[in-house]
């Protein structure tokens, strides 16, 4: 499975948010712990809605959570 053309700082943000667990974050946005783990590892690209929800949990704009890394168009 190809890696998505973006990285994310969810793991760091969880740590900074009082060492929030993957399960806690998953519960806040309505996905399983495994889905959060897959997003963190770049194995799954979340929907736009889930991405915004994650950013909302941390009180950050979307581009501070997810960072586009593909240099192409």
């Amino acid at each position: 499975m190809a890696k998505p053309p973006f990285t994310n700082d969810i793991r760091t943000l969880r740590f900074l948010a009082g060492e929030m667990t993957q399960a806690e974050l998953g519960e806040k946005i309505g996905v399983t712990r495994q889905t959060i783990a897959a997003i963190e590892q770049g194995k799954y690209s979340p929907t736009l809605e889930a991405a915004f929800r994650i950013a909302q949990v941390f009180g950050k704009p979307l581009d501070e959570v997810f960072c586009w890394t593909d240099g192409g168009e």
Binding site: V31, T32, Q34, T35, A38, T47, E49, A50
Partner: peptide, 11 residues
């Protein structure tokens, strides 16, 4: 808890 969890977007 996992058994009662609803289907998420990845599922």
């Amino acid at each position: 808890s996992e058994a009662s969890a609803s289907v998420d977007e990845r599922d």
